[in-house]
Design a protein around this nucleic acid. Sequence first.
DNA 1: TATGAATGAGGTTTCATTCAT
DNA 2: AATGAATGAAACCTCATTCAT
Lengths: 198, 198, 198, 198
Amino acid sequence: MTPRKPDLDRLLIDAAIALFAERTFEGTQMPAVAQRAGVGVGSIYRYFPSKEALGNAAFQHAKRALLDALAEALAEGGPSGSIRGEFGRFWRGFTRYASANPDAFVFLEHQQHDTFLAPDSRVLAEEIDRIAADFIERGQQAGEIRDGDAAQLVALAIGAFTGLVKLQRPGGLDTLPAEDLDRAEAAVWDLLHRKATP
Amino acid sequence: MTPRKPDLDRLLIDAAIALFAERTFEGTQMPAVAQRAGVGVGSIYRYFPSKEALGNAAFQHAKRALLDALAEALAEGGPSGSIRGEFGRFWRGFTRYASANPDAFVFLEHQQHDTFLAPDSRVLAEEIDRIAADFIERGQQAGEIRDGDAAQLVALAIGAFTGLVKLQRPGGLDTLPAEDLDRAEAAVWDLLHRKATP
Amino acid sequence: MTPRKPDLDRLLIDAAIALFAERTFEGTQMPAVAQRAGVGVGSIYRYFPSKEALGNAAFQHAKRALLDALAEALAEGGPSGSIRGEFGRFWRGFTRYASANPDAFVFLEHQQHDTFLAPDSRVLAEEIDRIAADFIERGQQAGEIRDGDAAQLVALAIGAFTGLVKLQRPGGLDTLPAEDLDRAEAAVWDLLHRKATP
Amino acid sequence: MTPRKPDLDRLLIDAAIALFAERTFEGTQMPAVAQRAGVGVGSIYRYFPSKEALGNAAFQHAKRALLDALAEALAEGGPSGSIRGEFGRFWRGFTRYASANPDAFVFLEHQQHDTFLAPDSRVLAEEIDRIAADFIERGQQAGEIRDGDAAQLVALAIGAFTGLVKLQRPGGLDTLPAEDLDRAEAAVWDLLHRKATP
DNA sequence: TATGAATGAGGTTTCATTCAT
DNA sequence: AATGAATGAAACCTCATTCAT
């Protein structure tokens, strides 16, 4: 009722994400999270009943924010005429999110969530893959995207993007010249694009 | 004359890699490593002075094996006439290694090694990037690979491959039909390939 | 003029006694006391400087109330003619107190007060034993109470009564039919009574 | 397989009982238990998964030992001819147990077990009351024990005995002259005994 | 005056490491 | 040489106490 520090839960989640991204969930100690958030250790437990709960909250927060960024980017500027245009929106969504939240993006791409992720977190995790796979399939039907398993193409494309984000840490994607980012976008598009058979 | 448990260090490194890949270095307990290797906890300390030492040994072993696989693939079948041909050898090297050692590959792609990696391990880590970047630059000079920072292109390409490997866990890359693997190779090549400007 | 929450200290002491009786002093948390008293945690500290202080206040309050109940019962109806009559007054004092304050009686009979009891609380604790021992000795001189160490007889008699009270928790002594209570009184009297040697 | 300290579990249970008796389950810290048992804190957790588990093990051990002592005393010297004789055996069983294990007896008589006792511990707890109540009922049928609810008479008698044991702490019942113990036995018997109506 | 969010010392529990066997 | 029971430092978590509101 009288919170002295507002949005302490957000502060804690942000601190947790930053540390989890850098040191792993298991490699991060609660006092470190508290210190980075600028609060006492005990305060964490007013908001999250356990380290595991904090981990799940952080994961869900990050994932949902990525979904939101994606949804926003996809809706931007009215209906996209083309598959290539839609890919650009995907790219813009990922780019924007990874620029604003480099830690969160890296954290989400960790593959060792199994040790602490609760079932409801797992459900969320598949959402993006579904959206992306759907795009791939429409692109294939339109003859714009190469043949092959949609999930595999998604993994290749997101993997490529992830590789770039990791390379750019810890400065963040912002330190990349716009030119480089455009080139990367073109490269990933060519990864997906079906070349006209000559 | 012959030690009863030959190559116990290898056994331990393999066990460690498998667990580190799945649960993180920090999330893996020494008794778990011992159990998976089928020895007592105390025995680990005959071969490695500490968990950290085991971690570094595992990292270096995995990295060196990848380098070896790469070197072997690159040397295969005499001098490669073309950039595309050389890319195929890279692909084959990565593919072979990731098929035979899926845990090791995933472990190497973790980004949270900073907590335990010793300086000499770090040096090793950059080797592959150097070899790959060199290839990229030669490809660019030959007009075969698109413009842009070589490190970034390497990150995109290896990232894409990593995405595919992660998708295929825990079955391993072997569960992927040859056809799919070929398609993926083509896709990643197109990621790098400079299109003729029409 | 009149404080809005009158006798908050009493409210707190009552809450504390109830919880201490059920869960031990060490097993009771300050927030639990506050909640049961219907106040905020911080408010406790306006009345008691520490948990230990609250514990001592609770103990002293309960003990003094028992002493008062005993004194009142002993004084009731003028001078008691006989030892048996005086025993009846003791019984009535204990009975009344334990009926009205079952938690307090149980709390007083805990034997683990040593961890928090201050010296002045300890002094109070011996008071009842002194009064009771004095009665025993007078009874022995009158040939009405069996031989033996007075403190031991007191321990036996109060122990028996305590056993009954504990059996009757949490309903309280009130749930016991008057008939049963009378039988118990007779039994405890026989515990003390010197039988005529035939 | 190679325990350096034999019967560490027994050592720990004994240490725990002594401390629980004196300071309550909640008031006893694990390091204190370890210290009293002469082992490291971590060792406790090789034998008991939690403090709660240790508490239950201690309770069950103490209760079962009391049951054994009672069973042994009741069986001693062939069939007991009389109710008074059987009462003597009960007395001897309790006396022997409380002499040998004063801490355990006091611990068992605590009334705050509810915070940590597991269901299977609770079951054990009722055993003695059943045996004693059965004896009371047989005594009543034989006209030797006074009328009234058997459970209440048991509570009175055991309560009286408990009062004596507590009085005698921490020296233990052994410090009591045999004469005093005999007098106490006579007194508690009179508590139960039905007086011939003159 | 009363509150309860915030704190950190201290409690419980884990786990890398040692060492008697 | 190999083991795993034992250890205690360090991790997670609780709760008595404070203090801004």
